[in-house]
Amino acid sequence: MSKSITVNGVKYPIDVPEDMPLLWFLRERLEFTGTKFGCGKGLCGACTVHVDGNATRSCVMPISAMAGREITTIEGLSENADHPLQKAWLEVGVPQCGYCQAGQIMNAAGLLNNNSSPSSEEIEAAMQGNICRCGTYQRIKKAVAMAADELAKEVS
């Protein structure tokens, strides 16, 4: 019986060395290249995906620990790029080079899954693991707050 993993709603067998981090399985085996390699040590957040809805650094997560888990990558965050965070990112015009942004969005989505109305301090605390060298932080803060407001409207 081979082990399997669900990525963006589709089940795949795990057929790579078991110590391979999830990042490389996603990028090179499944060719979901939206998830990025930045540091390989869980220090920069560029590789952030959701494991069962929680933001996780895929570059330090061995694939063997992922059997039976549900993974969501940036490609699977929404059907039509209409997640409140994606809409806010577009509205605010967050990205510069854009390389870290999938990780930023997935990390923020993880935050909003657990706390739908974060304070600005909570946003900063949750996002401090994600580095952006272009310096889009001011816009990230604004976009996350905007998405949280949007979610609050959807709920009420």
């Binding site: 060719e31 290249t33 990558t73 577009l90 990205p95 942004q101």
Partner: peptide, 27 residues
């Protein structure tokens, strides 16, 4: 004017050098 490629970036579809895939490629 918004950047022309923000829509691609927020979906993880903007491909950088590191994302290139060509047939027969090794790493």
């Amino acid at each position: 004017l918004p950047r022309h490629d923000v829509g691609m970036v927020i979906q993880g579809k903007r491909t950088y050098g590191v994302d290139t895939i060509v047939p027969g490629m090794q790493y």
